[in-house]
Design a protein around this nucleic acid. Structure first.
Lengths: 148, 148
DNA sequence: GTTGTTGCAAAACGTTTGCAGTAAA
DNA sequence: TTTACTGCAAACGTTTTGCAACAAC
């Protein structure tokens, strides 16, 4: 993706920021996720990716921005049990219906698309009068490479 | 549950500890979970429950024991995004097939029994050659009380 | 008796906060 | 020009660690 394309993509998020300022730091952090579409990045990792390019954004700003982007629904905050929060780009249509396979040996993370959960959600909404907004599904096990 | 019943229950876990010593501290911490079967306790909460009874176990020991019990499969380590790990008793047959509903308003946690996920698991094992050992499923939304 | 376990205090870790300076709208 | 945002450093809360004393096997 070239700079122009990315700039256009970032501008497409402008309406999401209606109550907030779209500062260079916020654009840059969003840019990191556009450059790493399928990554699950921690705050520290985002910070380092920016430093690698000889740019400079305070770590506190990274934390604050990631929380904001999660709140705006631009990112999804995830927890894989490694002691830090991770974030992934929220690709709207897709995001409600994908899950993570986590290899307990090599810790690889594999994404799975799925719609089967909708039936389960319908049952839960019915039986528990619980209005479901979102879900997080993680499967732990052995990936093909670790299962020989 | 009286003391004799609990003592018997704890002894039933003896074989799980074959490579480890079943110390009074470990028995006591396991006891806390037997006394609070459906709770999702953090290390700090376990520590306080023990202090409340004028007993004394170091906080570091609580942390080390909870990790050990998770590793032994006696407990399940959970993360509800509140900044600390929580643990629940692993009631073997039941545990693989229950999920958590988390109210985004009052933060109540509701347990749901379910078997519908098995179909999804079978599909994943098939399509991704990923051998599933366990899963964690969380649904976020509004509980009946918060949804008026 | 040996080896694993405990308790303490200190340190480490990810994350949050107060505040003064700065910049987006 | 106003109000929100940033960067820094210090503080925070949870979890981990080093180590000497101790106890389960």
């Amino acid at each position: 993706m070239n700079k122009k394309d990315q700039s256009e993509k970032i501008n497409a998020y402008k309406d999401k920021f209606k109550d907030y300022k779209l500062t260079p730091q916020r654009k840059r952090i969003l840019g990191i996720f556009l450059e790493n579409e399928d990554a699950h990045l921690s705050a520290e990792e985002v910070f380092k990716l920016i430093q690698d390019k000889k740019e400079d954004i305070g770590l506190a700003t990274v934390y604050r921005t990631l929380d904001l982007l999660d709140e705006l629904g631009v990112l999804h905050k995830l927890n894989f049990g490694d002691g830090r929060s991770r974030f992934e780009l929220n690709k709207s249509e897709k995001s409600h219906h994908h899950h993570h396979l986590i290899c307990v040996k090599c810790h690889k993370i594999i994404e799975v698309k799925d719609d089967l959960l909708q039936k389960l959600e319908a049952t839960i909404e019915d039986e528990h009068s619980f209005e479901i907004l979102d879900h997080r599904v993680k499967f732990y096990g052995y990936c093909p490479e670790c299962n020989d």
